[in-house]
Design a binder for these strands. Structure first.
Lengths: 234, 234
DNA sequence: CCAAAAGTGTTGAGTATACACCCATGA
DNA sequence: TCATGGGTGTATACTCAACACTTTTGG
């Protein structure tokens, strides 16, 4: 096609309009902690070859919106979620990843501190709910590959950023922070070493109150700058 | 196109078919070392609003090819380059990044060990040549943002992978390896510490010959596994 | 007073850094 | 023999990992 010869990417060439082009979609792997388990949110598809299968919420990017905006729009549609942490992961372009058409998907990692905030009342999907990451059902398309990327990224960023603040409520005890790390990283942490490292970074501020429970009350903390991505950690 | 009705990302809304969709392109920031300088390859555009400006080689992704394939095809077209190291960087989806149309660009980082291998005889571009990274001309679209991403990624991966093997010829002296690091990272390295670290990793094998020069000959090395990405380094 | 979770320091090992001189060669 | 780049070791500071007991509360 001569189309290629005339231009770089967009091409104002009218012939372009007739050439089939891959579509662009976004898909978001949304994580939350619930009941000491790492979970992610899946929706059940209603149409197409993958109908009935579970997948990450996502959809086609529209002309005029950024990729982030598209991801946020889809999450709002799928689960009425807003204002969550989003980070671009990777783009998946295997033409056979969706048997119906060539769709390039930009994968996103999303984090939310409250799994309960997700409300599944989208007309677009048959259902939506949280699944334990360790026990995901079979996923549509190449979504299990996207899931692996997302999990790897989450684990890795936990070790060198303050990303954890997006998985915790505004106020939390130190034990809760440590438990978050242990849950996501799937290994126990040394309490003293962990506390020392976190404290040395000065990311937390101590709050006045105490968390009352059945036993010795825990001091409460908050992240000094929530949702900001500092560097250097474990 | 019924295609849309059949699947997830494409939403089943028939109206979708008539809606304009963003296009997908790839753009590759190709690096090489030449004359103790880090350089990257730019092409001069011939058409569109950006005609005359310099940009990274790239172009629209075709239906049926992967993103990697598209990037390789564009590099082959632009500079007759094949078999180089490519790694996906990030996707840039700001609708205004290309004033002509909404084009989502998947940025790639490319590395080649021999700048001389690039042959600019593409009909698509007015010119193509290497520019010192520290002295790039004004770039078309959002390519200066892509350039920053690429450079940051290169610097960072140099510190924890063996990615350097893609910027060096099959055989090199230790001084050349060190100089590569110093050039890219823009800081001097301690020769003894650097050598110790690299050696401790066992990534290199010593070759029998010597590099003859005006002075004391240097031992020659090669990467044990070329183009493989091991982990853990500086 | 007992069960359970919260909180707290020290030591040893390993790793990273700083630093200066001799070597081999060609000209 | 000299100019030039190639090649080598050690001492110190720092960072990371291992490890167990006391405190505070509710029941």
């Amino acid at each position: 096609m001569a189309v290629e010869t005339l231009q770089h990417q967009a091409s104002m060439d009218a012939r372009d309009a007739e050439v089939a082009r891959p579509k662009v979609a976004v898909d978001t792997v949304l994580f939350a902690i619930e009941g000491e388990r790492l979970k992610c949110y899946l929706v059940q598809l209603t149409a197409g070859a993958a109908a009935g299968k579970w997948a990450f919420p996502g959809g086609l990017v529209r002309v005029g919106e950024t990729l982030d905006e598209a991801a946020r729009r889809e999450l709002e549609d799928a689960a009425s979620l807003r204002d969550l942490y989003l980070e671009q992961l990777f783009s998946f372009g295997d033409p056979s990843r969706d048997p119906g058409a060539h769709v390039v998907s930009v994968g996103y990692l999303g984090l939310i501190d409250d799994a309960g905030a997700a409300i599944s009342r989208s007309r677009k999907y048959a259902a939506g709910r949280w699944f334990e990451v360790a026990r995901l059902p079979a996923l549509a398309y190449d979504h299990s590959i996207i899931a692996e990327y997302a999990l790897r990224r989450l684990k890795s960023k936990l070790e060198y950023t303050n990303i954890a603040c997006n998985l915790l409520p505004p106020t939390f005890s130190f034990a809760e922070l440590e438990e978050l790390y242990a849950t996501v990283l799937e290994r126990p942490l040394d309490r003293r070493n962990f506390r020392r490292r976190i404290m040395a970074m000065g990311l937390l501020k101590r709050l006045p109150g105490k968390r009352r429970g059945a036993h010795r009350p825990a001091a409460l903390y908050a992240f000094r700058q929530r949702s900001v991505q500092a560097i250097e950690m474990l």
